[in-house]
Each structure stands twice: as C-alpha cells, then as structure tokens.
Simulated assay, not measured.
Amino acid sequence: MPTGLTITNDIGSVQIDENWRNFGLRQVIPLTVTIPANQTFVANTYTVSAAGEAVLIAPKSSNLFVIPQRTTFSGGVWTYHLLVMRQFLLNFEESETVNIYVYDLLPNGVYGDVGLEVFNASGQSVFHSDMDPMSAAAVLPGSSGFTGVSGRIYAPLFLTHTRHFNPTFGMYFWGLRSSSNTITTTELFLPGGGFSGTNDNAGLYASVDVTGL
C-alpha cells in the first residue's frame, strides 16, 4: 500500500499531495502606471521585484494591457520586466493601479503551529491550512480570453512571454487585462524592425482566482 497523504475533492481531483509543493500567495504589490496623452505605451518597462524560490506574478489591470517582457533572477530576487499599454492612441493621460499578485512555493516556518501542515520526505512544507493557495481555473494561450464563474475575480498569471514578430508588420504582443470574472486579450503592435523570418508565439498564461485576496 502506498505511503503518504493525498486529499481529493468530491470529483476525484487531487487537492493536497505530500509530493507536490503548493504555490501560495506571498504578497500583493500595487503598481501605479501612467500612460501619457497621445501614447499607446510607455518607452520604459515597469519592473516588479520579489524575493523567493520560484516567484510567479499575476497582474490585475482593468483598463490597461500588461505584457511580460523578461524575467531576471539575482541574489534570491526575481525581477519581472513589464510593458503596460493601452489599445488605442488617446489624447488624454490615463492612470491605473495594477495589483500584482505574487506567488511562490510554500516556504518553511512562515505560518503558525495551529492548523494542518503537510511536509514531503525532504522536510519541506508543501501545504499549510493558513496559506492562500494558488487556484488556477485554466491554462490558455495568450491569444485566448477567459470567462470564469460569475461573482469571482480572476487575474492572468504569466507562464511564458507572448512576443511574436513578422518581418513585414513588425513586433506584436498579446496583452492581457481582467475585469471581474473575465480576462481579455488583445494583439498590440510595437514599432520596430530588423527581424528575419517569422515567429508566431501566443505564449501561455493561467487564469487564477484572486477573489478576496
């Protein structure tokens, strides 16, 4: 008989397994973004940094589109470089506070000693009842939108970049924004050239439930 712990829900999906280290919410970082008048994008990317073992981020913006450009890791700190754009050229300034939901593998010793805590064979904490576990509803290409359960709030969690290019038309990104239970995706053009060949990469994102976080 196998040893260990596995907890499933009423339809047989595994919720807790002693061999799987869960991702949990570490923090929410508010990022104030301003798009000047007569611009669709800002020339410099915004950066979001967080210390952790395997940090993932899910930006939630209602009006502006967020695009992942690259990620760097140094000294235990992950830095995400983001481009924030709006879909159309408008003659007024637009500002928004983008909430960045930061997830990481569950670290040891950050929760109290009351509740249920599960460890793997290496002594690493894989679940604690005080954590806010990542709840992913779907994994989709950047070119596909998402509609979740009514009354819930979702944010797109970047898994791979969404950059693709064509030598005739230039570089494009799939930008993502979310409003309540809907994630909207739009193909956005970034002027540039000098590319050879074509690359059609819609990327991947996960729609994560951030209701109440």
Rank of each mutant, 00 (worst) to 15 (best):
residue 115 G to T: 06
residue 157 L to F: 10
residue 172 Y to S: 05
residue 127 F to T: 00
residue 132 D to I: 12
residue 154 Y to Q: 10
residue 175 G to P: 00
residue 155 A to W: 09
residue 116 L to G: 05
residue 176 L to H: 05
residue 163 R to K: 15
residue 127 F to N: 00
residue 139 V to G: 03
residue 185 T to P: 02
residue 112 G to E: 07
residue 204 L to P: 00
residue 199 N to W: 15
residue 129 S to V: 09
residue 95 S to C: 08
residue 193 G to Y: 09
residue 150 S to K: 15
residue 130 D to V: 11
residue 137 A to V: 11
residue 167 P to V: 04
residue 186 T to C: 04
residue 136 A to L: 08
residue 183 I to S: 02
residue 201 N to M: 05
residue 204 L to I: 03
residue 109 G to Q: 06
residue 203 G to I: 00
residue 164 H to W: 10
residue 171 M to F: 08
residue 183 I to F: 12
residue 144 S to M: 12
residue 203 G to P: 14
residue 187 E to A: 04
residue 101 Y to M: 04
residue 124 Q to S: 09
residue 178 S to Q: 05
residue 144 S to G: 09
residue 208 V to A: 01
residue 154 Y to D: 01
residue 192 G to Y: 07
residue 179 S to I: 13
residue 176 L to E: 00
residue 200 D to V: 10
residue 192 G to F: 04
residue 105 L to A: 04
residue 130 D to S: 13
residue 196 S to M: 07
residue 206 A to I: 06
residue 194 G to C: 03
residue 106 L to K: 00
residue 102 V to W: 00
residue 117 E to T: 12
residue 115 G to M: 12
residue 135 S to G: 07
residue 134 M to Q: 15
residue 169 F to H: 13
residue 134 M to P: 12
residue 181 N to K: 13
residue 146 F to Q: 06
residue 154 Y to W: 15
residue 125 S to N: 05
residue 130 D to W: 14
residue 177 R to N: 11
residue 196 S to E: 15
residue 166 N to A: 06
residue 131 M to C: 07
residue 160 T to L: 12
residue 136 A to H: 07
residue 121 A to R: 15
residue 176 L to G: 01
residue 197 G to T: 08
residue 197 G to D: 01
residue 196 S to Y: 15
residue 165 F to D: 00
residue 137 A to E: 03
residue 162 T to G: 01
residue 152 R to Y: 15
residue 169 F to S: 02
residue 98 V to K: 02
residue 204 L to H: 07
residue 151 G to T: 14
residue 204 L to A: 04
residue 96 E to I: 04
residue 118 V to C: 02
residue 107 P to K: 07
residue 186 T to Y: 12
residue 171 M to I: 14
residue 151 G to Y: 13
residue 167 P to G: 04
residue 120 N to A: 02
residue 194 G to H: 05
residue 143 S to N: 07
residue 136 A to N: 10
residue 156 P to Y: 11
residue 183 I to G: 02
residue 150 S to H: 15
residue 114 V to H: 12
residue 128 H to N: 09
residue 185 T to I: 04
residue 172 Y to I: 07
residue 185 T to S: 05
residue 116 L to P: 04
residue 155 A to M: 09
residue 185 T to C: 05
residue 129 S to H: 09
residue 169 F to W: 13
residue 198 T to P: 00
residue 151 G to R: 14
residue 118 V to G: 00
residue 174 W to M: 01
residue 104 D to Y: 01
residue 128 H to P: 13
residue 192 G to R: 11
residue 180 S to F: 13
residue 182 T to H: 07
residue 148 G to H: 14
residue 153 I to Q: 15
